[in-house]
Design a protein around this nucleic acid. Structure first.
Length: 281
DNA sequence: CCGGGCCCCTGGATGC
DNA sequence: TGCATCCAGGGGCCCG
């Protein structure tokens, strides 16, 4: 579900509710398919910050020493959502009507962070000393943040030139640029007039695509992301960017630019919508 | 190391 | 109404 704009919107809502809070109680789903790692280490830790890298939320924890770091790393997968609400009183339903709660973190201010995730594609891990490789390998090899100075046209163009996979696959891969998923890949490619199956992207088109990624992610963050199906923010509200989608989920409708009917096909194992009229190989 | 295929899991929408 | 099928915005792993 959530891509960079959605995770960033969640992060901004979590920030005032988690920063400085001590975790006084921890519960997690014992299900064998739950992708939860070392969460018992959260007990009695204080949350120092709520950061984001790509689609990952990274919360540094107070260890009382500079020699070691401890981080809570969360990935929402396709259907993950975070909520903060009152800690339930004993005897009552601890999740107050929320279904599929996989993790509960009780905070020292009487509130509880709940991670609900119907499909269990999400992850929650405690990682020491940034040893991401074992537990969250995608985070270990994550590309530059698209809205930072680290995301350069030069690096992006060179990365695209280095391989022959379809450009859509490269955008989803997370190593070339962090945080782009299926929605914003389709949107950026439409904006840049590049066919998603294109395997050769020259310097000029790379620069156009680079700019499209920055523009679209920025606009989506301003609208607090896209709710197409499941995505909800910490306050339960929907993102408002869905009304601005030009390509994703718009197949069968005329292209806003040239009027050709938008087409949907599977590229890089993902449903992909593009305009056969103005997106060129 | 790469690209492609398949898998993980659950729920909602759709069609018969 | 009930059942089968398909689809979903995530990443990981295995294979050639």
């Amino acid at each position: 579900m959530p891509e960079l704009p959605e995770v960033e919107s969640v992060r901004r809502q979590l920030l005032p509710r988690l920063t400085g809070r001590r975790i006084v109680g921890v519960w997690w789903d014992p299900h064998p398919h739950a992708r939860l790692h070392d969460l018992e280490r959260l007990r009695e830790r204080r949350i120092e910050r709520v950061d984001r890298r790509g689609k990952f939320l990274v919360c540094p924890l107070d260890t009382g020493t500079r020699d070691t770091t401890l981080e809570l790393v969360l990935h929402l997968g396709m259907t993950g959502a975070l909520r903060v609400g009152p800690t339930a009183v004993p005897g009552a339903d601890p999740d107050a009507g929320l279904t599929h709660v996989r993790v509960r973190l009780d905070l020292d201010d009487g509130h509880t962070l709940r991670f609900r995730d119907p499909r269990r594609f999400g992850r929650a891990s405690v990682v020491a000393d940034r040893a991401y490789h074992q537990v969250v390998p995608t985070l270990a090899t994550l590309g530059p943040e698209p809205l930072s100075e680290a995301f350069t046209v030069e690096g992006f163009a060179a990365g695209l030139a280095a391989t022959r996979a379809p450009v859509k696959a490269r955008l989803l891969d997370q190593r070339l640029v962090a945080g782009v998923g299926n929605i914003y890949a389709d949107e950026a490619l439409w904006q840049a007039r590049i066919h998603p199956a294109s395997r050769r992207i020259g310097r000029r088109r790379a620069a156009t695509l680079h700019a499209a990624i920055v523009t679209i992610l920025t606009a989506a963050i301003e609208r607090e992301g896209t709710t197409f199906r499941d995505y909800q923010m910490v306050n339960g509200q929907s993102g408002r960017y869905a009304a601005y989608l030009a390509a994703y989920g718009q197949h069968g409708r005329p292209c806003r630019r040239c009027g050709t009917i938008l087409r949907r096909r599977v590229i890089a194992q993902r449903g992909t919508t593009y305009c056969p009229g103005c997106q060129r190989i």
